[in-house]
Amino acid sequence: MIQPQSLNEKLDEAVEEGLPGLPEFKRWVRRNDEAVPYVWINGRLASHLGKRCAALGREKGLGQVLKAK
């Protein structure tokens, strides 16, 4: 779910944020948390305004290994 009014210059601004598991190592990223209020993956809520939802990375049932056929 996208907030089109937040597709603005903030998307281009780069900041440094700690890496998961290695917070002192800063990675270069661009974020505008308001632009994406909700993300669902396979019907499960994964991210809300840039914040991790409870199940993300802690439970199975979100992402799956996709196999080419």
Partner: peptide, 19 residues
């Protein structure tokens, strides 16, 4: 590499990337 540390990959998911 990162997927072994935190398989959430939230830095992409937060922007609506689901695959």
């Amino acid at each position: 590499g990162e997927i072994e540390i935190d398989a959430a990959l939230h830095e992409s998911v937060r922007h609506g990337i689901t695959t």
